[in-house]
Nucleic acid binder design. Structure first.
Lengths: 359, 359
DNA sequence: GTCCAGCATGTTCGCGTAAACATGGCTCGC
DNA sequence: GCGAGCCATGTTTACGCGAACATGCTGGAC
């Protein structure tokens, strides 16, 4: 009559060790039967609820161990309406910053008892993202983190899927709560630093123009030059790769009046330096170079690269904090859309110096 | 009498747009009610089943659109007993290779209709991994991929959690099916290449000794030297970072007899090159350097680095293929534990050359 | 002594889905 | 012309869990 009648005869001895038959993992009911209690009591023990006598608890725990019980998270999610999972959408994990941010998100989420579901969209086209988001929400997440969100700006893209969203690094329209490195501060610091060394002006190798972070770095560079009354050279853009930096660098190397270059990331700076050296322009004697990111290797470039250090750990942590916040207060009208800013820090190394006396 | 009685009166007009009340996402039953069919028919349409009249299907699809229906994956997983999710355990996403592999896994999984659950274990201690695996299986995955699995060798570590496991890059004991770059072939190629250039012997800067990949590269280097009748210099080890490469490089730079160095990854090679240059030893004129990985930037190092290119994409793809294979044939005794090997490729650039005539 | 509070535990039910089974109409073959 | 079989669709049920409610027992206040 009780549900035990169904399950009890079917098993004899413990399973789990043997690979026989169409094994079904043990359920609460199985544990309950073995411990001689109701499945509800098992549930209480599993959730660390109070109100279970010590002796009963022990019996249940022991039964769990014997059967190798693990609660079924699907069933759990179904009844609770919560998945305890976060989704992360990103575009290019080979980009150092994205990978680092993801790692930090993963750690923070784990600490909070959430798992992390990653989707790596092929391309930052609206469609790919749409699909990625669809897959994630379909796949059961309580919230979404979008890393490197340039794509969100595409008009008509609707990622409102019912779950809260937090954007890391770039939501130009402020449609979602966001966590971001203070790109402007970093770019300004780099530019002012180079000007302060005595350079007449600073050239900028920007990132791809569909990247919001890249645009903000470029804008801050522009403003910093204007504020200082320095001439504003034309903006050259790459695509974050060292190769693109090299390409732009070759062009810059031909111009005698280039004495300081601020690249929007370290990898492009690396390419720029190689191009300069190949053209016979010494770094930093003839041209100073500053990057952005502070990838761990940049201290060992030739020469070691001055750069702007981003705190990816902090960005990841804050993303998770902000998202969990939104998830928890789901009832109250969340959309308060905060913006958390993480400060970067200028790191000076051997790739920058005052302009040479000659010239 | 029908379930519709419960749901119908509760809602008026469509929800989803308004933020009123304790919204519950629309369910099959809601769609069914709106379309005037049974929920089973909705299920059939949702799963693309045959046997639904075109006109009915249209009605259901339209109802889905109106309500913004998304199937509840928890309920789905509960009935199907499958989550359509893979778990990935890794240790350090800032390591280029791991991040790339993860990205490839993510893409391959997505293509197969699986989502990817990532856990980034703090440290490669048995405990951390144990916990990570626990969290993942608890969190509902159909299979597990362990990237950079040196940790699996710890005795007593039991990750047998009922789900199939595939190991990327290193399961020394072959306890699990694995996909791996052919480390030996890569290291051998690099060593033989340097010997072939005329160097009397080749020094090796190995990775951390608890990394299986590092140990295999070192072993192959050792064998290649012996096979060639070259003297075998003592092994120096770093920890994959450029900083450690620099440290070892400073030491090597003091030895006049060092003319060729094979580093176990590109970042350490970078550090080595900086140390050599600082000590007045030119690369490649005085010392040739070869790395491993072919990170995208290595072509722009100073000088551009000869290295062994790993095909992370392929490793990721194969991992997923192997894992899905195991998942599907769960019944048959899977543990056939295949090993899939992915070939790396030597890429020669400016950092290597025949030894200088002098000396 | 009575009654109620509090506690350990059991019972019922619903979550959303898909499999299994049921139904009723229609076609086709002989 | 009548049953076999197929098709579109409906109905029932199980999946595993935990919230809500139910039960029965102990002890203390009055």
């Amino acid at each position: 009559m009780s549900p035990r009648e169904r399950t009890a005869p079917e098993r004899s001895g413990q399973r789990g060790a043997t690979a026989r038959g169409k094994r079904r993992p043990p359920s609460q009911a199985d544990v309950a039967a073995l411990a001689g209690v109701s499945s509800q009591t098992v549930s209480r023990v599993a959730n660390g609820s109070s109100n279970v006598e010590a002796e009963t608890r022990e019996r249940v725990l022991s039964a769990m161990r014997i059967l190798g019980y693990q609660r079924n998270s699907a069933a759990r999610a179904l009844t609770l309406g919560r998945f305890h999972a976060l989704g992360v959408v990103t575009f290019d994990l080979s980009a150092h910053g994205n990978a680092r941010t993801l790692a930090a998100v993963s750690r923070a989420a784990q600490l909070a008892g959430y798992s992390v579901n990653v989707v790596c969209a092929e391309e930052p086209t609206g469609n790919a993202v749409q699909q990625a988001v669809r897959q994630l929400t379909d796949q059961a997440v309580d919230g979404l983190i979008v890393i490197e969100a340039q794509v969100l700006e595409r008009p008509g893209l609707d990622v409102s899927s019912g779950v809260p969203i937090v954007v890391a690094d770039g939501d130009p329209e402020r449609r979602y709560p966001a966590v971001d490195t203070d790109q402007a501060a970093g770019a300004t610091a780099a530019t002012q630093y180079l000007l302060g060394l005595g350079h007449r002006t600073v050239w900028h190798v920007g990132g791809p123009q569909d990247s919001y972070a890249a645009r903000r770095r470029a804008a801050a560079w522009h403003v910093a030059l204007k504020d200082a009354g320095a001439p504003v050279p034309p903006l050259r853009s790459g695509d974050w790769t060292a190769e693109s930096g090299y390409r732009v660098g070759r062009e810059l190397a031909t111009r005698e009046d280039v004495t300081a270059v601020f690249a929007a990331n370290d990898h492009m700076a690396l390419g720029v330096m190689l191009a300069l050296r190949e053209a016979g322009r010494a770094v930093p004697e003839d041209v100073s170079v500053v990057g952005f990111d502070d990838v761990p290797e940049s201290a060992y470039y030739a020469p070691p690269l001055s750069t702007v250090r981003q705190d990816f750990e902090e960005v990841g942590r804050q993303c998770v904090a902000l998202l969990l916040d939104q998830i928890d207060k789901a009832g109250s009208d969340a959309r308060a859309a905060g913006l958390i800013t993480v400060s970067p820090q200028l790191v000076t190394r051997a790739s920058s110096a005052p302009p040479g006396p000659a010239r």
